[in-house]
């Protein structure tokens, strides 16, 4: 598996991977940070229920205010991860390179696990780097909007930020697994990414609108709950447990298909 991990890193250093993986994550996190800070107000209008990036300066001055905007766009970071994992895996099918890999690494489970692990580390680096840049941007813009940044650097603030990074990363791994599974099933990067995004964004929204308790069971909703540290309908621990269960089922199914299907 380590050979597959090492081999995958040669491919991950490609400019296209850096552009879409790192660039995409960086774009959403920095944009969300800028929007959140720039649109922060002293008080919200009566009856406003907190949609979009509208938040008070007082809330942003809390220890968890530093990454507030980033958590709000965790779904988009997840979409980037989904596209990254799906693209990297499905391209092996569409380009015909998978056969070369199978000849040099007949252990298909090791091959796919090593690939997923390499992509997971790449996603971690991308998320950490993107959030680091967003944090710098937040510290640069915050005081100008009257936001007190001292709470961000308190021990509680640092802990809240690190936990948010961990939650966003765990959610991204889930999206990545979904992307990998779609890639193995559909074997086309364009189709896998399109189906993945179509399911996560409009697909689950439609199902959720029809199904009353959909947000408690749908994978995308649960991944969002993980990134946010829980929602009003699903606690963090419940979301995490269900996501782990789904991950095991999807992971095993993907490995079985990858192992057994003709190349």
């Amino acid at each position: 598996m380590l050979r597959s991990f090492s081999s995958e890193w040669v491919k991950l250093r490609r400019r296209s991977m850096l552009l879409w993986g790192l660039g995409g994550t960086l774009f959403f996190t920095v944009l969300a940070t800028v929007f959140t800070i720039e649109r922060a107000v002293k008080t919200l209008e009566p009856g406003f229920h907190g949609h979009g990036f509208r938040i008070t300066i007082a809330e942003l001055s809390q220890p968890n205010g530093l990454v507030h905007g980033i958590v709000d766009v965790s779904n988009l970071v997840g979409i980037v991860a989904l596209a990254l994992f799906a693209g990297a895996t499905a391209t092996e099918y569409s380009q015909g390179t998978l056969r070369n890999l199978f000849v040099r690494q007949p252990g298909r489970i090791k091959l796919l696990c090593g690939k997923y692990l390499a992509l997971a580390v790449f996603a971690l680096l991308a998320i950490v780097l993107a959030i680091a840049v967003a944090v710098v941007v937040a510290f640069a813009l915050g005081p100008g909007k009257g936001i007190h940044t001292s709470a961000w650097t308190s021990s509680t603030g640092v802990s809240d930020t690190l936990h948010a990074v961990l939650r966003i990363y765990l959610a991204a791994l889930g999206y990545g697994l979904l992307g990998t599974a779609l890639a193995v099933v559909l074997r086309s990067p364009a189709v896998a990414i399109t189906v993945g995004i179509a399911y996560v964004l409009p697909g689950e929204a439609i199902i959720d609108a029809i199904w009353d308790n959909g947000d408690r069971w749908l994978p995308g909703q649960l991944l969002s709950a993980v990134a946010h540290g829980g929602t009003s309908s699903t606690s963090y621990s419940r979301a995490l447990a269900l996501v782990a269960l789904y991950a095991v089922v999807v992971g095993i199914g993907t490995l079985v298909l990858f192992q057994r299907r003709d190349a």
């Binding site: 040669v10 491919k11 490609r14 400019r15 296209s16 380009q95 015909g96 390179t97 056969r99 070369n100 000849v103």
Partner: peptide
Amino acid sequence: IESPSFYPTL
């Protein structure tokens, strides 16, 4: 195997 397949940008 068949036509040679490689990563075009590498």
